[in-house]
Amino acid sequence: MNIEEKVSFEEKQYDLLTIGEILVDMISKDFSEDFSNDEYVKKFGGSPANIVINTKRLGLNSIVASSVGYDGFGDFLVSYLQNQGVDISLITRTTYPTSMVVVTRSKGTPIPIFYRGADYEIEYTQKLEEAIKNSKIMHFSTWPLSREKSRKVVEKGIEAAKKSGTLIGFDPNYHKDLWDMDVDGVSYIKSIIKYVDFIKPSEDDAERIFGKDTPENQIKKFIELGAKLVVMTLGKDGVIVADKNKMQRFSTLATEVQDTTGAGDAFWSGFYTGIVKGRSIQEAVKVGLAASAFKLRYVGAISPMPKYEDLIKEFNV
């Protein structure tokens, strides 16, 4: 995979399929780093679902596979997706409570508290396998990898994607607190990098996996583990994109920051949209930066993302 080239896709039913968590984000009304706030606002959340909603608004045909509880929060999440025009046929319901994350508004990296339940009860079905085979890109994060049941779903999904020529995107957003105590999450993440086509670590993700180092050295470590394309997001310092032969830095397009929650998901959304729309990897990175800059103007993981044509016109990318 070459950062200067476009990605060729077969004609398939879905542009993007994501596997993973749908959950409720409880976000503080005010900026704080120590959870001293008294008021929190309920927001739709879960990285895979955020990406599907964003890409739907940008013009892709996207679908999410996930699990929520038979409770009010589960109803809220499913209804939200339906109102956004998202296909909910790959979402299962369970007696476990809907998962939730409590987080404070931040201009840096938000520090979350996790309350998990239904998100890892996702099931691998024949319908999911057919959807994977009929998707141009399959995306997942470390959330489903952190528990055995959902981890097996992703593993089967990777196998199906490889057989059908579906490209694989991986968000290595490792958080130790999410993983079962008897599983070495870092070692597992390192072991599957060779199977994916796109990987987008943040600086914090890379540090949690490899320890402290420069962004350039961190990217080399991902490449050495078999990553074909690495995009490292650097917050206000932009991104670095790299294949095994070349590394290139891009500046941020953000001019206003209301809340960083979901900025990485917005980047993924713009990046995938750019690729599917026929842009080179380099150009798709710019679309990702535009989508992220747009999202940063709003509180919560989801913003009123515009159509692809309007986004690239506004940010001149």
Rank of each mutant, 00 (worst) to 15 (best):
I281P: 00
M247T: 14
G274A: 11
I312D: 07
K133S: 08
N83E: 15
R116E: 10
M1F: 15
V196R: 07
F114G: 09
M138T: 03
T166M: 11
I193N: 04
V24K: 12
S66E: 08
K194T: 03
T261F: 05
D265L: 04
R105G: 10
P306V: 10
K286W: 04
K313G: 01
G85I: 05
Y115T: 11
E309K: 15
I223D: 02
F271D: 07
R279F: 14
S99D: 04
E121P: 01
F9S: 05
S66P: 13
S79R: 14
N316K: 15
S280V: 00
S146H: 04
N245S: 11
Y14I: 10
S28A: 10
G165N: 15
V257L: 03
K162G: 05
Y70T: 03
R116D: 05
T261K: 04
G165M: 11
H139F: 12
I3F: 07
F250S: 06
V241N: 06
E216T: 11
V239S: 15
Y115P: 06
V186T: 12
D205V: 08
E203F: 10
E283V: 11
K6F: 10
K6W: 07
V183T: 15
L145S: 05
L234T: 06
P48S: 06
L145D: 04
E207S: 08
Q126N: 14
Q218C: 05
A160E: 03
R279K: 14
P304E: 13
D182I: 05
F294M: 02
E121L: 10
A118P: 15
F315K: 14
I193S: 05
F222N: 05
T214Q: 13
P215H: 03
G157P: 00
